[in-house]
Design a protein around this nucleic acid. Structure first.
Lengths: 349, 349
DNA sequence: CTGTTAGCGCTTTCAA
DNA sequence: TTGAAAGCGCTAACAG
């Protein structure tokens, strides 16, 4: 098992030069004669030598590693975010270490410790940790972390911490969906999903309420639910079972595509046609959205791009003593069939 | 930005002891008097000191880090596998570093180099890299890697390399689906998806062909396709468009749920009812399977468990000079509605 | 162009 | 019970 690790000294000895010279050859420094270089290269290749990044990190005091805290990658939204971040990190010569932290778990002391020990150069945080942790707990933790490295959060902006922040214009997302439905003639529009504990969900909720008010519509159809397909299914049951057909909403905005998926299934079970009887709009533009029946109208939040930009900004902050500002990223409505565009604008009672 | 890093020497000086003692306190060694320990602890806490894992790694020659190569985490199958591995790694005190390598990209020299430099303690490989790379290229690379660390592959077993191997019993997966359909009365059964370049796909293909032969059925309905929903959609078009209704297969086994999803959509477009006109079975039991219409019968391969077991085995190999054997993991058929059980066994011409 | 020296932050002898 | 010294593998500074 233990393949006695070869060091730069072994190479130096074997090539009859000093370790420094070997180091220079590896780093492709200019000040090495072609002859020496070739000689050293040969020995390096012969022994399949690769310098230890661990030693380099110790010396340079930079790990060229970024930590990422996400609720996990099982949710396609975060999976895409991670991959976007990963690509950009590769491009910039950084490595990512992913820490999965379930939505409702707080940033434990043990995780903080692990991060600190690793001496990562910076942290990217998204998901429940920055969405659902009470600010009175979260802010101090972030401040502590911030003392040793720059931090980037992907969530609605947080007050009183010196973090770079990237956020989806969630409010705009709901507003766009709402306006689209309004223009199609809908007036009884319901909002389904999320939980008031999540700041993102809250922001959408607020966007919904505010836009409804602007449109002079009563926002009576709302239902707190989770973020899963099952939650969508349950949500529809709760939302509709108590209502007569006359008072039933004619359109449904779901907090994400998973909830929309569950809703579609449940509506189908109940014999309610989409989009004829009720229009449905999701959010996230997940891979399955074109394949639901009917294909789901949704909003693309571009999580992969968020990830990419996050790494870019964080690395920039590491180099320049840079600007830590908040940046909203646009949300774009993807129109398919579940909203009923093909039916044209109609009049609803 | 640069928060002058505190070292064990700073703590030692401040506490009026030697660095050794501080080290001992941190490692919770026995041989420190209660008084000294308390004194040192206080200084440590005061300065929020955490020992550098980088220095520890350099000294101990172990990084307590495992590398994982996956095609990415965007595919839920691999996302689940990763999370399973992640959990187990946490439990055992290891960190995972994820390298995303697109399905059809070979293990580049640059990636090999990166892995070697990181001095990870072991590697877990799955996806295209071990599925689709020609063996004449793959085996030598694995051998090279194997010289410096234990390797675990999650894929059909590879010949001539000393790797631990975990694999889904893919052949059994197809056989189960096939037999289930057969018992329901189906005789014209089609197989859709995959590509002959992938060893997993090949194994399923073989399972299909072999089982068809055992059942004394002609395996005429096969179609190489990709692994995406779009591929499923296209596959159905190609498979059915040339056939008269009489000769059309009455059942369809898809290589994965994505392909099944695309197939369902396309069948719907073509006015072919599932399961009345054609039964459909997928594979992977992805989260959306209960929410397709009709709900998808599929096979659960338990990727998360694969991930967990992988880490467990690899860590075991790191400690014991352990057993490198191949382990098939069971595949279980999850029966929903797309296969038409509720219709009961029927007679097809 | 090349080599010597010192030190990154830690732990492990070994000695006191 | 505590500490001094050496070294993990590498590179930057400084000589030569």
């Amino acid at each position: 098992m233990e393949t006695e690790r070869i060091t730069i000294y072994d190479i130096a000895r074997e090539a009859g030069v000093s370790p420094t010279t070997v180091s220079r050859v590896i780093a492709e420094h200019a000040n090495v004669s072609a002859h020496t270089r070739k000689k050293v290269r040969k020995v390096i290749d012969q022994y399949h030598f690769t310098p230890s990044r661990i030693a380099q990190e110790l010396l340079s005091k930079r790990s060229l590693t970024l930590g990422v805290i996400l609720p996990g990658v099982t949710h396609p939204y975060y999976a895409e975010m991670f991959e976007g971040a990963y690509q950009e990190a590769c491009r910039l010569g950084y490595t990512l270490i992913l820490f999965c932290l379930p939505q409702n778990e707080p940033l434990s002391a043990s995780l903080m410790d692990q991060i600190a020990r690793r001496r990562v150069d910076g942290m990217i945080l998204s998901g429940g940790i920055v969405e659902a942790t009470p600010e009175r707990e979260l802010i101090p933790m972030l401040r502590t972390l911030r003392r040793s490295m720059p931090i980037l959060t992907i969530c609605p902006p947080l007050p009183d911490v010196d973090c770079i922040n990237i956020y989806s214009d969630l409010s705009s997302s709901v507003r766009q969906s709402l306006r689209h439905l309004y223009n199609l003639g809908h007036r009884r529009i319901a909002f389904l999903g999320g939980s008031y504990e999540s700041r993102s969900a809250g922001e959408r909720e607020l966007g919904f309420l505010d836009e409804m008010k602007k449109l002079d519509l009563p926002a009576v159809y709302r239902h707190e639910a989770g973020h899963t397909a099952e939650a969508g299914q349950l949500g529809v049951i709760k939302l509709l079972s108590s209502l007569t057909d006359q008072r039933r909403p004619t359109a449904l905005i779901c907090i994400n595509d998973l909830v929309a998926l569950g809703s579609l299934t449940q509506l189908h079970h109940m014999g309610i046609r989409v989009p004829e009887d009720i229009a449905v709009i999701g959010c996230d533009n997940q891979f399955f959205a074109p394949y639901t029946s009917p294909p789901l109208t949704t909003v693309d939040l571009h999580p992969a791009e968020h990830g990419r930009v996050a790494v870019q900004q964080l690395v920039a902050a590491l180099t320049d003593e840079a600007m830590n500002f908040s940046q909203p990223r646009p949300a774009v409505l993807i129109i398919r069939e579940s909203c009923g565009v093909s039916l044209g604008a109609r009049r609803f009672e």
